[in-house]
């Protein structure tokens, strides 16, 4: 099984450490994984801003880059969601794309990992992963079932998961929404942030670095003491 690692543009630029943690984690678990150097961006920012029609060249390029892989793994629910939802991807090459936590659960890969993380952790359920990729049951649905990331964190020793008042309300990032409706986006983010703070979380984690970046930005601006980590960084501390 040949795994291609897809590292979204903002992770590549701003959070290489998340790419490193993901790469090392997969290698450590014994997977044969490569990062195709020619990759660019999936085009989601264009699509969500209403310019999907300009993303077609990028999509073709993506298809070409990952042509020889069986599975594409990416540490981002929202990029994976875009690739899965968009008919232009995967024109016949046969790969499957999975968000990292989904992949780890699917492969029951975590038994080998002996890690401990002695912190109170709050999970930010990113919407595109939760509701789009159905990585768990969102609170609107009358079905139960823990999300992939919660299931993974439960396998980490000493982690204490905190209970949020609103377990899966949107953090308000939303890509260009965060700029276009800046005040609203900030208010949504603050409300999420204080839910984490009031629940006693020391660390906020999640599947999507974009949402985490938004909350981290608020934390930095307010000089609060709250750590923000992609879950791969908990599983594979550097």
């Amino acid at each position: 099984m040949k795994i291609g690692l897809f590292i979204p543009c903002y992770i590549n630029q701003y959070y290489p450490r998340v790419g490193m943690a993901t790469y090392r984690l997969l290698r450590n678990l014994g997977f044969k994984v490569e990062y195709p150097m020619g990759q660019t961006c999936c085009g989601q920012p264009l699509g969500n801003s209403g310019y999907e029609r300009y993303a077609t060249q990028g999509i073709d390029h993506f298809n070409g880059t990952f042509r020889d892989y069986d599975i594409i793994v990416a540490p981002s629910g929202s990029c994976v969601h875009f690739v899965k939802e968009h008919p232009g991807f995967d024109s016949g090459s046969g790969w499957e794309i999975m968000e990292l936590s989904e992949f780890l659960i699917e492969m029951t890969a975590l038994e080998k990992l002996k890690i401990s993380f002695r912190k109170k952790v709050g999970v930010l359920q990113s919407c595109h992963g939760l509701r789009g990729l159905k990585l768990g049951k969102s609170s609107e649905l009358m079905q139960r079932g823990a999300s992939t990331i919660v299931r993974i964190l439960k396998q980490v020793k000493d982690v204490r998961l905190v209970q949020l008042k609103r377990p899966d309300e949107c953090c308000g990032f939303g890509g260009t929404f965060s700029v276009r409706e800046a005040e609203l986006s900030v208010k949504m983010g603050e409300d999420r942030l204080y839910d984490f703070i009031n629940s006693g979380a020391e660390v906020i984690t999640g599947t999507d670095v974009s949402c985490l970046m938004h909350l981290e930005g608020l934390i930095l601006k307010r000089k609060l003491h709250l750590e923000v980590k992609h879950f791969s960084e908990i599983l594979m501390p550097v």
Partner: peptide
């Protein structure tokens, strides 16, 4: 619009690539 109420992360020395 973004940076008024949110800090952007620092740019690290090198990208993942």
């Amino acid at each position: 619009a973004y940076t008024q109420s949110r800090s952007l992360p620092d740019v690290p020395a090198e990208s993942f690539k």
